[in-house]
């Protein structure tokens, strides 16, 4: 399975200290707009509930592969959701179902703020639910 982006993120984060990880996520959030999230998808039905900021995730299937794009109105959360959606796009149902909370833990963002790590786990579950895997 192609998890190159995930591996890239994991490697990059691994080399950084906590403060730099924090800035890395903010940079991801600031640059995530390279592929703009379609404005008219910011509808309530694409909203992920239970977050302190608004998070939208949309899901498409192409050739049996699941793709996600995400958006948030908070920069830090946008960095995280963009990392999550890019990391786990392009996977088959089986591969996506095999992604576990360990994958999230390995990104080493727990020390960033524990709340964000919980949020990312919720994002993963939400993506798996959207893909119905």
């Amino acid at each position: 399975m192609s998890m190159e982006l995930y591996q890239e993120y994991a490697d990059a984060l691994d080399m950084l200290d906590d403060d730099m990880r924090f800035e890395y996520i903010i940079d991801l959030g600031k640059t995530a707009n390279e592929v703009p999230f379609p404005e008219d998808f910011m509808r309530d039905e694409n909203l992920m509930h239970g977050c302190m900021s608004r998070v939208w995730i949309i899901h498409t299937v192409n050739d049996g592969k699941h793709n996600f794009i995400g958006e948030s109105d908070a920069v830090i959360v946008k960095g995280l959701v963009s990392m999550m959606t890019k990391s786990f796009s392009g996977l088959t149902s089986e591969e996506l179902a095999g992604i576990t909370l360990d994958h999230v833990r390995k990104l080493n963002l727990g020390a960033l703020t524990t709340q964000r790590q919980v949020g990312m786990m919720a994002m993963l579950k939400h993506m798996q639910k959207l893909a119905a895997v």
Partner: peptide, 13 residues
């Protein structure tokens, strides 16, 4: 222009 969660997260750090 800044989301409150971003402010709170920086403060938290």
């Amino acid at each position: 222009g800044i989301h409150p969660l971003d402010i709170a997260t920086v403060l938290d750090r």
